[in-house]
């Protein structure tokens, strides 16, 4: 029996399937492209080719799109990214004490002592220093994001780039580039700036002790990895499944919950990949808040609501997801 985990992030949607010993047997990584429901259906239809719904013991969702995904698939547990990432990190490296995680829109640091999360921090309103910013710069320079890190490693003299704010960093990069600095040096400078910003902003005041592991989509970037090792002056481990750690954590938590409750899974089955999911938003005129309410329709039937402050609609969602 397998446990399914789905992490619907701002940039990528990931799915993992774990066997009974929590080993990863399948993992999928697709781009969300602003359409979380389609991304979830896409990964489910892929996995459906090889597995049957009856083989699924439990299902969990995480990531910023976790609520909508849980309605779609019928999840046993819906968990925030911090907890999911921490669970996955501890499962992967038993004696981890620091988790650096940089995703599409969030960056976070999780401090773990004796296997328990003791502290964490996330970036505040600004998304400077996250994956989507790197994505955008790679696109601007015409370099595929996969090769971005390798360019950084080729740098001889990293150029100093302002890292405080994405807009400042971009204008600084453009100025340096127009002065004729080498692209590799600029990219390496950007990696250093991101890490500097991360350590002085997200990780400010946190005690970073080894083992340090680095996960999230940005961990694929060897330039950032090297910049972290240089700045921290200690080895930074990138786990094998660094890109799907959230989904891995969600799958573990889902199995735990089904084990605990002994009521079987709520998973609706892979057939949901064929359902037609639509969302419809409207402004509730019940009071002056004028909430923008979103209703999720599965085959034209509403299955969940979000966005209302008073709970008039999302009570329905709560009873559906437990």
């Amino acid at each position: 029996m397998y446990s399914l985990g789905i992490d619907v992030g701002s940039v990528s949607t990931n799915l993992v399937l774990l066997d009974n010993n929590n080993n990863v047997v399948e993992k999928l990584y697709v781009r969300t492209r602003g359409k979380p429901m389609e991304a979830v259906q896409l990964v489910l239809s892929e996995i459906r080719k090889k597995y049957d719904s009856k083989q699924i013991y439990s299902a969990g969702t995480t990531g910023s799109g976790r609520m909508i995904a849980s309605i779609q698939i019928g999840a046993d547990i819906v968990k925030n990214e911090i907890t999911a990432h921490a669970v996955a990190a501890i499962q992967t490296e038993k004696d981890v004490r620091t988790v650096l995680e940089i995703g599409g829109q969030d960056s976070k640091i999780i401090i773990i002592r004796d296997g328990v999360v003791t502290d964490f921090a996330m970036n505040t309103v600004c998304a400077a220093g996250t994956g989507s910013f790197l994505d955008r710069q790679a696109e601007r320079l015409g370099i595929p994001i996969e090769e971005f890190g390798d360019h950084a490693l080729k740098a001889a003299v990293p150029v100093r780039i302002a890292g405080r704010c994405a807009v400042f960093a971009e204008s600084d990069m453009i100025h340096k580039q127009q002065l004729g600095y080498n692209t590799c040096d600029i990219i390496a400078g950007l990696c250093d700036a991101l890490v500097r910003n991360y350590l002085s902003n997200v990780a400010k005041g946190k005690e970073i002790l080894p083992k340090v592991i680095f996960q999230g989509g940005v961990a694929a970037n060897s330039g950032i990895h090297r910049a972290f090792e240089k700045a921290l002056n200690m080895p930074v481990i990138i786990p094998e499944h660094y890109d799907v750690m959230g989904a891995l954590g969600a799958a573990i938590l889902a199995r735990e919950k089904v084990n605990r409750e002994r009521a079987g899974t709520r998973f609706k089955g892979f057939s949901v990949s064929e359902s037609s999911f639509k969302s419809k938003s409207f402004v509730c005129s019940g009071c002056s808040n004028q909430c923008e309410v979103v209703s999720v329709l599965e085959n034209q039937q509403p299955v969940g609501y979000f966005g209302d402050r008073c709970g008039k609609y999302n009570q329905f969602t709560a009873s559906a997801t437990g």
């Binding site: 669970v87 501890i90 296997g115 605990r260």
Partner: peptide, 20 residues
Amino acid sequence: LNEDNRPTYGQCLYSRQNPV
């Protein structure tokens, strides 16, 4: 929950007594 009962490595994060 863990204040008086420090767990061994990697065990107590989501045990039955201590559901997430």
